[in-house]
Amino acid sequence: MGFKRLILMVASILGILIISKTERVERWLDRFILSPSLSDQMERTGVEERKEYRFGNLYALVQYAKKTMDTVHTKNNVILLPPNEYMRSIKSGFDFPEPLSFYYHTGGIKAVITTSPNVEDANWTFIPRGEGSVALVPITKEELHKLLITYKKYNPI
């Protein structure tokens, strides 16, 4: 019985080594595991420091939104996420995630895009403030409608 287990273990290891050397698996490893490089991540030992390094602007944006919403004492806050095409056209340097991803990374802050069925609930939005800078500001219904008209010609995600 011991010899059979040894043969199965050796066969399993060989199978894993063969599969791991395929081009598809190597691309996946390079893209998601080793890039940003593993050694760079190992130098950053703090959880927040690693998240900031790995996610870049997205993490900074999410932290900014969380801090802003924590200081506001109103309920039912919904953030309108500007279309990424719009943000690229004005060279803001920010790409916004999908609302579900935004909700996950912020720990429960609701967000909508311009084509969401409940876009009328949005009472906050991100406004570009020059290159590489955005501000989270409250908006009225009239301002929301003006923004939706502006964003209409851009793909929402």
Rank of each mutant, 00 (worst) to 15 (best):
M1K: 09
K4T: 15
K4G: 12
I7Q: 07
L8N: 14
L8W: 03
M9H: 09
V10Q: 06
V10F: 05
V10N: 04
I13E: 03
G15W: 04
G15R: 13
L17W: 10
L17I: 15
L17P: 04
I18F: 10
K21R: 13
R24G: 15
R27G: 14
R27L: 15
L29F: 11
S35H: 09
P36R: 05
S37C: 13
D40K: 13
V47D: 14
V47S: 12
K51F: 14
F55G: 06
G56T: 03
Y59M: 00
A60H: 06
A65Q: 04
A65F: 03
K66A: 06
D70H: 03
T71E: 11
N76K: 06
N77C: 06
I79N: 02
L81I: 01
P82A: 10
P83H: 04
P83C: 04
N84F: 12
N84G: 08
E85V: 11
E85I: 09
Y86H: 12
F94P: 01
F96V: 01
Y104H: 11
H105A: 05
H105D: 02
I109L: 05
K110H: 12
A111V: 04
T114K: 01
S116T: 03
V119N: 01
E120I: 09
A122N: 02
A122F: 01
W124Y: 09
W124R: 07
F126D: 02
I127Y: 00
G130D: 02
E131T: 12
V134G: 00
L136Q: 06
P138R: 06
I139K: 07
I139C: 09
H145F: 10
H145L: 13
K146N: 10
L147F: 02
I149Q: 13
T150H: 13
Y151N: 02
K153I: 01
I157R: 14
